[in-house]
Amino acid sequence: MPGLQHSVTIAAPPARVWAVLVDVERWPERIPTVDAVERLDAGPLAVGSRTRVQQPRLPEAVWTVTGLVDGVSFTWESSSPGVTVTASHVVEPHAAGSSLTLALTVSGPMSGVGWLMTRSLTRRYVETEAASISAVAETAGA
């Protein structure tokens, strides 16, 4: 199954990193790889929550939360014909503050072709997203 994983160390406590991470509605103002986010359900992220995400050079996608451990991790999936993308977001304590790991896997009959076409763009996006979350969490006003 094609995919990637990227981790960064953040000089902020896990609770602050988590708060930035799950505030998905503010991602467009904080993360340059996200143009628009629309929550399709009320309340905090929870298993079953759906969020529409628009990113440059990628088709609009609706992501559904499939797993969530409050304060630690959430996983969501987006499907299009022949491809399912699963993205996980994990915050862990670290001696320097926190560790954030973003991972993405692609599955389905068209996943190989889709991954070949989007792999380098996806890697840049994941790295940018981790760096952006880190920068916001390390700011006192986060």
Rank of each mutant, 00 (worst) to 15 (best):
G141H: 13
G114M: 15
T33D: 11
E92A: 06
V53E: 01
S98A: 07
G71M: 01
E138T: 08
L40E: 01
G97I: 09
T101G: 04
S107I: 15
W76T: 00
G71Q: 03
A61C: 03
V22I: 11
E138I: 10
G108C: 14
M1A: 15
L116V: 14
A135H: 07
V53Q: 01
G114T: 13
A140V: 14
P2K: 06
L21G: 00
P44R: 07
P59V: 04
V8K: 08
S98R: 01
V85R: 05
A36H: 11
V72S: 09
W18Y: 11
E127F: 07
E138P: 11
R39V: 06
R50L: 04
G114A: 14
T66E: 03
T33E: 06
G112V: 15
T128V: 06
A131S: 11
T66M: 01
S134V: 11
A130V: 04
V85I: 15
H89M: 06
E127K: 14
V37A: 00
R26D: 08
A15T: 07
R50N: 02
G67H: 10
V136I: 08
W27L: 02
A140I: 15
E29R: 14
G97N: 00
V126H: 12
V126L: 07
L58T: 05
R16I: 15
L121M: 13
W63L: 02
T9K: 12
R119P: 05
L121W: 13
R123V: 14
A42F: 07
Q54K: 13
Q5C: 15
T122N: 13
L45E: 00
A137H: 03
A61N: 04
D35E: 10
L100I: 02
A142E: 07
D23M: 09
L4E: 09
T33L: 09
T51F: 09
S111P: 10
V20G: 04
Q55G: 06
G48W: 07
A19C: 07
G82D: 04
L40Y: 00
A36D: 12
V69Q: 08
V65A: 04
V8P: 05
A130M: 01
T84E: 07
V69F: 08
A140W: 12
R123I: 10
T105Y: 14
L58H: 01
A142K: 03
G82C: 14
S120A: 14
G112C: 11
S134L: 07
T128D: 11
